[in-house]
């Protein structure tokens, strides 16, 4: 009779997931955002319209350009390389070169969680991908410059959501995502507004989070910050017992409410249908 907590949670999770799916309807589902595949061929029109469009190839690809010069000792592509033509360009690139123009971003990336995970070589649980390097998030050849807050924010939902789909989905069902990403309100919070740009933080401690919330919610305190923005069990560790407990409560309540909603609405719709039929029949019989 009594369902185990696990089953109940799963049922609640399914209901929530269905709701989320309904809401998302073709949103941040793709694992690789469009254009992130590393093709041999450069779309020159988009490249020139992008942020780096004025840079000559050699400014970022000096090694390759040198290899093409007469009398060069190296080659491009390098046939002597044992991984010849098999190195993924996106992760093979020497991103230290980016700091020639993006010094502070590069430095702060190295202070953050992504750099830490990259060093350890850990993979995300959700998509099994490695921690991102510059090119994983930034479409270096094509990303346009001077986007406004909403355009940037919508990009973040897609790009961050590629490796953290559960977080993106829950963000989009949260008021922040509904107002910001979906309705395009530039005062709503997007990914990097809370988690920071480049120096990404996971915000697991309410004390740290309260300071982040304070940016828009001046009355914020650690208790306020314990609000669950991403109601998902994905990526929770043993240390996140408090959030896990909150989530079980949230799932249980939503399951009960879901069943209640179906029952109540179902009863009234059925009853009204029956009632209408009877009255129509009554009317017809009279005539």
């Amino acid at each position: 009779m009594a369902l185990s907590t696990k089953h109940r949670c799963r049922a609640a999770g399914i209901i929530l997931a269905l709701l989320a799916a309904l809401v998302l309807a073709g949103g941040a589902g793709a694992s690789v955002p469009p254009g992130m595949e590393s093709s041999w061929y450069l779309d020159l029109g988009r490249y020139q319209a992008g942020a780096h469009g004025k840079l000559a190839c050699a400014e970022c690809h000096a090694k390759q350009e040198l290899a093409l010069k007469p009398g060069s000792k190296t080659a491009h592509p390098d046939t002597k390389d044992p991984k010849y033509l098999m190195t993924p360009a996106l992760r093979g690139y020497d991103y230290a070169q980016c700091q020639r123009c993006h010094k502070s971003a590069y430095a702060r990336y190295h202070l953050g969680k992504h750099a830490e995970a990259l060093k350890k070589g850990t993979k995300t649980k959700q998509t099994g991908s490695l921690s991102p390097v510059c090119g994983d998030c930034h479409q270096v050849h094509y990303d346009p410059a001077r986007l406004d807050r909403v355009e940037l924010g919508r990009r973040q939902t897609l790009v961050c959501g590629a490796c953290h789909p559960a977080q993106a989905a829950t963000y989009l069902t949260d008021y922040h995502g509904q107002a910001g990403d979906k309705l395009g309100w530039d005062k709503a919070a997007f990914c990097s507004d809370c988690h920071g740009a480049h120096e990404v933080k996971s915000l697991k401690s309410p004390e740290l989070t309260a300071g982040v919330c304070w940016r828009c919610h001046p009355g914020s305190n650690p208790r306020f910050a314990a609000y669950v923005v991403h109601p998902t069990l994905v990526d929770l560790t043993k240390e996140d017992a408090a959030k896990r407990r909150s989530l079980y409560l949230i799932y249980t309540v939503s399951a009960i409410l879901g069943v209640l909603a179906v029952c109540v609405v179902g009863f009234f719709y059925g009853h009204t249908f029956l009632w209408m039929l009877r009255e129509i029949q009554h009317k017809l019989r009279k005539h």
Binding site: H217, N221, R223, F224, A226, V228, V253, L257
Partner: peptide, 23 residues
């Protein structure tokens, strides 16, 4: 007014309030 209510309610009450409101 989530900031005011969480002075004396735990943060997940906002989630529960949202769920109740929605359903």
């Amino acid at each position: 007014f989530p900031e005011w209510f969480t002075q004396w309610l735990p943060g997940y009450f906002i989630n529960l309030a949202l769920l109740l409101h929605l359903f």
